[in-house]
Amino acid sequence: MYNKGTIITGLVIFVVLFTSPFVLGLVTSGPPPEPELTAKAKQAKQCVEVKEFMVESHMQLLDDWRNEAVREGKRTYVATDGKPYTVSLQNTCMECHSNKSKFCDQCHNYAGVDPYCWQCHIAPKEKS
C-alpha cells in the first residue's frame, strides 16, 4: 500500500469526526424525558389509539390526519375502538394535551427534531 501513514491517519480522523456526534450524544444527554399528561388527558385513559401506537407512530397518524382533512375533506376519524374524533391537531389533540412544552417539546428537543407544525398551528396558552 502506498502512503500508508497518511491514509491511516486520514481514516482515523474521518472515523473520529464521523462518530463524534453519536459519542457526544451518549455522553451529554441523560435519560429521555417522560411526556407529562394533563389531568384531562389522564382522565380520558386512552388517546385516539393505544399508548404504544401513539408513542411510536403519532407522526404518521398526524401526517395522515392532515392529508385526510385538508386534501380529502374528511375531518372525522373513527378510531380502532369505533370512537369518532374531529381531525384537528390544533383543536382535538391540543385540547387534551394543552401542555405543549411538557408534552411535545421536551421529547422533541431531546430527540433533536423540530416539527414545523407550530410555525402555523397555534399552541394552547400555558400557565407559566
Binding site: S57, Q60, K74, Y77, A79, T80, T86
Partner: peptide, 16 residues
Amino acid sequence: DKVDLRAQGFGPDPKA
C-alpha cells in the same frame, strides 16, 4: 412505507 393505522377510517362530518 406507511404504517398500518388499524383504525376504522376517515369520513366527513355528517353535518357537512
